[in-house]
Design a protein around this nucleic acid. Structure first.
Length: 360
DNA sequence: GGGGAAACAAGTGCATGCCA
DNA sequence: TGGCATGCACTTGTTTCCCC
């Protein structure tokens, strides 16, 4: 039976503000766009319901919220009527992609009156239970895969400390060598003004920017922008294997090029010289120092560090065979991560296609 | 319900100074 | 004198929060 959203739920609102919340001494949870926002000693909703983010970040996202809880004013509550199970309502609303109903000049907002006419297929309670079981199982699998990825990342860092000791204290007393003497260290180039001149873009040469480095795991495997021949002429191509280090906005985030690419002057490239340093080792070494370097960055409108700061960093230098052993370990773990990520992507695809099948 | 201020993030613009 | 390195200011978009 096809029903409208307004046929199966009633709207619930809240005037609770962030400042009204108390710490964990409160008995009942209050939910915001990012999950639990705080606690109170009273609650608004005594049965499970659906929360919808109605403005700002994550607008339109649906959340299944437990009984005896509340929402803050930036959330909308959809309280299920007798003929629908709360979890089924949650999946139905999730499939509606409510963000398409946004309005507002500077900040997007959505309102119940604009999406209450959304239709979906309401089945018997028994069938609702079966569908909930299927989706719950897939969601559990997705959460497990994400958990696995986090654990694999922790494993690599733990192995680094196990092999090389505490990198902050240099507890294994390795030689300390200035980064600039370990290889070529130089800023990327973007000479042309304006830098975003359309003539520079759209060619065959990959262009990497700070966000792509910050969002990469170990290797930069994809890119969104490219340089044209003209773009390449005013920039510089760095070889595969270059360690990219951000020096503006994101500070000291690193990732390794898995293809030849250009980058602007907000990124510094490091290519190992003849001495015994591996980019993969250096990438993880930086991960321990990132917060320290970041805290030392100058900041007026935007954080910056210069080439001199990076050049003078003293890197602890374990023997090459130990670095190789660590690199092999990382590559083995990375194979597992690729497999888990592939499984995660496939599971997410299955979830999306089933949502489309049942609620589309 | 309707709207926006404030803070933050990330990329771009450009003045300044150094150096070959 | 032009190319380049540096770093602050600016622009644009995102996120959080709150006011009327």
């Amino acid at each position: 039976m096809i029903v409208k959203l307004e046929d199966v739920c009633i709207k619930g609102t809240s005037n609770i503000r962030q400042k009204d919340l108390i710490n964990k001494d409160g008995k009942y949870s209050v939910y915001g766009a990012s999950g639990i926002a705080g606690y109170l000693n009273s609650f608004q909703f005594e049965k499970p319901y659906v929360g919808v983010v109605k403005d700002g970040a994550g607008i339109g996202r649906a959340m299944y919220l437990p009984q005896n809880s509340s929402i803050i004013g930036t959330m909308q509550a959809l309280i299920p009527k007798e003929n629908i199970l709360p979890k089924y309502l949650y999946y139905a609303v999730s499939a509606m992609h409510l963000d398409k109903y946004y309005s507002g000049a500077t900040i997007p907002h959505i309102y119940f009156k604009n999406y209450k006419h959304e239709k979906f297929n309401l089945v018997s309670v028994e069938e609702q239970k079966q569908i909930i079981t299927i989706f719950s199982a897939i969601e559990k699998n997705i959460n497990y895969r994400n958990h696995q990825l986090n654990k694999l990342n922790e494993l690599i860092k733990a192995r680094f400390v196990e092999m090389f000791g505490d990198p902050i204290l240099n507890s294994h007393y390795y030689n300390l060598v200035k980064l600039s003497s370990l290889g070529t260290l130089a800023r990327g180039k973007s000479k042309h003004r304006p830098r975003n001149d359309p003539q520079l873009l759209g060619g065959p040469y990959p262009l990497i920017q700070t966000g792509e480095i910050a969002n990469s795991d170990i290797f930069i495997k994809k890119f969104t922008n490219t340089y044209s021949e003209l773009g390449l002429q005013q920039s510089k191509m760095w070889p595969k294997g270059t360690l990219c280090i951000t020096i503006a906005a994101n500070i000291a985030q690193t990732a390794i090029l898995s293809f030849d690419a250009c980058f602007p002057d907000s990124v510094v490239g490091f290519i190992p010289g003849n001495c015994d340093i591996m980019p993969l080792y250096l990438h993880y070494w930086f991960s321990f120092f990132q917060k320290i370097i970041d805290s030392q960055a100058s900041q007026v409108a935007q954080k910056n560090i210069n080439l001199k700061v990076l050049s003078n960093l003293e890197v602890m230098l374990p023997p090459k065979n130990e670095q190789n052993e660590f690199a092999n370990f990382v590559q083995q773990v990375d194979k597992s991560k690729v497999a888990v990520q592939k499984s995660l992507d496939e599971t997410q695809k299955l979830f999306d296609s089933l949502m489309q099948e049942y609620f589309g």
